[in-house]
Amino acid sequence: MQTEMKPLEVVDAPMRTVVGTTKTYDMQSRTAIPAQWQAFFQADHQIEQSVAGAMYGICADSDSTGTFQYTVGQEVTNRSATLAPDLCKVELSEGRYAVRRAFGPMSELPQVFDLVFNKDLPAKGLKQRDGACFERYPDDSRNSADVMAYEIWVPVQ
């Protein structure tokens, strides 16, 4: 199956707080991110006041060597909730985002990311601003082990 994509949108979003687990990767080790997702689900974290309906994968704190922090988690309504020792909190900034919505094999997600950064943003004259980029995985009745609905959110000026 080929990935189905909707046209790039530019939306204004409120600040969000996500609670989850974080690990460090680089462009070579990023292939291990699916194992982080599996470990998150297997741990069956009890995240207080989580918002039903979506999961998040957040890329933050990237540096010039290509190293970045990746968080798997759920949005929460209580920003000051006490966290279990193995969990962390990530704030997603309020503001304007370029959003690409897609449905397809997760193996194609890196190519969709590349499309957003290398074609979509330049074609719209958009520049990335400070803030984390993230994937949002909404509930979708079509989701299966092989294909999923997902959204790529990039903070833009």
Score class of each variant (00 low, 15 high):
S29E: 09
I33H: 09
Y70Q: 03
Q74I: 12
V10C: 02
V76L: 02
A52E: 15
I58E: 08
V51R: 05
Y56D: 05
K23E: 15
S80C: 10
S64L: 14
Q36I: 06
Q46F: 05
D26M: 07
V10K: 00
E75I: 07
Q36V: 13
Q42G: 12
I33V: 14
R16S: 12
D12M: 07
L83G: 09
D61V: 04
S29Y: 08
T31L: 12
A43Q: 15
I47L: 09
Q28P: 03
N78T: 11
H45L: 06
C59M: 11
Q38N: 12
A13N: 03
D12G: 06
P85I: 05
T31R: 11
S29G: 08
T67Q: 15
R30A: 14
T77N: 09
V11L: 04
Y25H: 05
I33Q: 03
Y56A: 02
V18T: 01
F41W: 08
M55I: 07
G20V: 08
F41D: 11
T65H: 04
T21I: 14
A54L: 00
Y25Q: 03
T71N: 06
V72S: 02
D44H: 14
Q38P: 12
C59I: 12
F68G: 07
A84N: 12
D12H: 04
G73C: 01
V76S: 02
R30T: 14
A84M: 08
E75L: 04
E9F: 02
Y25E: 04
Y70G: 06
D44E: 15
A35L: 15
T67D: 11
R16G: 07
V11H: 01
W37F: 08
A32S: 14
T31N: 09
T77A: 08
A84Q: 09
S50N: 14
R79Q: 14
G20F: 02
V72E: 00
P14L: 13
Q69Y: 10
S50F: 10
A43S: 13
A43I: 08
W37D: 08
P34C: 13
L8E: 03
M55A: 15
T31Y: 00
S50Y: 10
F68K: 03
A52I: 15
G73Q: 00
T67E: 14
T65I: 04
C59S: 15
Y70N: 01
D63V: 06
D61Y: 03
A13K: 01
Y56V: 01
S62L: 06
M27I: 08
I47E: 03
G57T: 08
C59Q: 12
T77L: 10
Y25D: 07
R79D: 12
E9W: 01
T67W: 05
P34W: 07
E75H: 00
Y70H: 07
G53V: 04
P14A: 14
H45W: 11
S62Q: 09
A81W: 00
T21C: 14
G20Y: 00
G20Q: 04
T31F: 05
D44N: 15
D44Y: 02
M55N: 10
S50H: 14
P34Q: 13
